[in-house]
Write a protein that binds this DNA or RNA. Structure first.
Length: 498
RNA sequence: GGGCCACUAGCUCAAUUGGCAGAGCAUCGGACUUUUAAUCCGCUGGUUCAGGGUUCGAGUCCCUGGUGGCCCA
């Protein structure tokens, strides 16, 4: 670390409080991309960014200025650049504000001839190798502020993520959906089968749960008359970390009154095809070296059919429990005594059939037993009008015709409580206020939840969710205080008992 | 939770059979008026993840722990 390096520069000027720019690297390129070698344009521009390459050349110096749009060469001369000696002493990574003339060098490289410059911030820490960057994944995620400068794919992927979310928002708003915000603190965790994070509100002296899904609040809003709503919701699930799981992740959930699950299928496939076209210009993309055809329509296949196909014999919700258990044993699936046929069928599906699907498929007809918020299938007893979209072997979304009947919903909740008593820590609890809302009447409604992180993984060809999350959850670093003492414990304001 | 692998300078990586811890880049000093990861000369820079063990001698072998990656549950 080089502390206070710029104190030794012969003419240190104070770091300004603001710096006006009127150009970016990309703007200069697009406007002057086709200049002949040796051109001088007379056009003066002001831009700012980090110095990422530097080449001293005696009475000349070259550099590369990087901003959020890209990079462009800086050209400094002893005659025309103020404080030329100091310019040559800048470190890779220093932030600069530059005023200069757009020109090309003798070799034809588009450049900014530096006519004035100022340091906007010095880097006290050396930047990573200018060619190799950072390869250690842990360092990349922990020091994303460095990674974004030295790993071009990271910058592009995370920029694409922002773009995807923006496109989704616009696409839904164009279809009459309104965006809402519902509570993150839930008194009762609900809306999904997952273990929550628990926290505590001191003034209310009450435990709260970070939401595992916004579903029940959004359906309350449909009861309240918001006919088309969506929320881009950060949700929190207290489970393991893997290439496909981050404890906090982003879902988009939407609800549409007077619609059913078939409307949700159309909506998903059209929206995803739209996103692929906007991002890639085509609905046929490549993911992890394999083609992925996102063109509408996607295949539809009942869950029981896919299981039957995978295990080579016909099974369904009416297959005897003993036989389903035997099949689970044969396919190395753990089961519990309280599992009914629906749960056994789902476990078999997840073990044998889900991962082998590559092209998009709507897996339809989920058992009532494992779908406590979905409406019973209009034709098939024991089934619900629920589907998941599987793309590249992974769940992309979950959707259904919403369960409307408060009496049925209460029974489903109570069945969940029995599962919890049996030891299933992911089972739901009874939410009386939600039942009260249903008693006021929820109209026929289609609901849908999409995992944004996984969607962005598909659209950016990312192998791990950590590559599409700016700051993925990591174990805390062993930190030290300034004097090498262990860092002070965080004071939570919690009163401790004597 | 289980298995396998990795961890060496700020970054990227070497180090033969267990035998003086090295290079490139960055940093720092110097040369250079058209460079393109510039080039050239020089100087710095190490708790080899931590602790223990074996040994005349450990980056290397053994044990325990840490962090990360991949796979499985």
């Amino acid at each position: 670390m080089t502390a206070g390096r710029l104190e030794y520069v012969s003419d240190p000027r104070p770091v300004p409080y603001r710096f006006d720019t009127d150009a970016t690297a990309a703007l200069v390129r697009s406007e002057f991309g086709e200049l002949e070698p040796g051109s001088e344009t007379g056009r003066i521009v002001r831009l700012a960014g980090r110095l990422m390459l530097r080449r001293g050349q005696g009475k000349l110096a070259f550099g590369q200025l990087a901003d959020s749009s890209g990079r462009i060469q800086l050209f400094a001369t002893a005659n025309e650049t103020p404080n030329f000696e100091d310019f040559g002493r800048l470190s890779l990574g220093d932030w600069l504000g530059v005023t200069g003339e757009v020109m090309t060098t003798r070799k034809g490289e588009l450049s900014i001839k530096v006519l004035d410059w100022t340091v906007l911030a010095e880097t006290r820490r050396p930047f990573p190798d200018k060619w190799h960057g950072i390869t250690d994944p842990d360092t990349r995620y922990r020091q994303r502020y460095v990674d974004l400068w030295v790993t071009e794919e990271a910058r592009q992927t995370l920029t694409t993520r922002s773009r995807v979310i923006s496109l989704i928002r616009r696409w839904l708003e164009d279809r009459g959906f309104i965006e809402v915000e519902t509570p993150v603190f839930h008194p009762i965790p609900g809306g999904a089968l997952a273990r929550p994070f628990v926290t505590h509100h001191n003034a209310l002296d009450q435990d709260m749960f970070l939401r595992i899904a916004p579903e029940l609040y959004l359906k309350r809003l449909v009861v309240g008359g918001f006919e088309k709503v969506f929320e881009i919701a950060r949700v929190f699930r207290n489970e393991g970390i893997s290439p496909r799981h981050n404890p906090e992740f982003t879902m988009i959930e939407l609800y549409q009154a007077y619609a059913d699950w078939t409307d949700m299928m159309s909506l998903v496939e059209e929206m995803v095809a739209h996103l692929a076209t906007e991002i890639h210009g085509t609905t046929t993309i490549s993911y992890q070296g394999r083609d992925l055809d996102l063109s509408v329509p996607w295949r539809r296949a009942p869950l029981a059919d896919l299981v039957s196909e995978a295990i080579g014999e016909r099974v369904g919700i009416d297959t005897p429990v003993d036989h389903l258990r035997a099949l689970c044993d044969r396919h190395d699936v753990d089961w519990k005594d309280y599992y009914g046929p629906g749960k056994l069928l789902l476990e078999l599906y997840e073990k044998t059939a889900e991962g082998v699907q590559w092209q998009p498929v709507f897996v339809t007809e989920y058992p009532v037993e494992v779908s406590p918020l979905a409406r019973p299938h209009r034709d098939l007893p024991g089934m619900t009008e629920r589907f998941e979209a599987i793309v590249a072997g992974r769940e992309l979304c979950n959707a259904f015709s919403e369960l409307l009947d408060p009496d049925d919903q209460r029974e489903r909740f109570e069945s969940q409580v029995r599962e919890r008593d049996n030891g299933d820590e992911e089972a739901m609890a009874v939410d009386d206020d939600y039942l009260r809302a249903l008693e006021y009447g929820l109209p026929p409604t289609g609901g849908l939840g999409i995992g944004i992180d996984r969607l962005v993984m598909l659209l950016t060809d990312s192998a791990t969710i950590r590559d599409v999350v700016l700051f993925p959850t990591l174990r805390p670093e062993q930190t030290e205080g300034r004097d090498g003492e262990p860092a002070a414990e965080l004071d939570t304001g919690e009163e401790t008992l004597p």
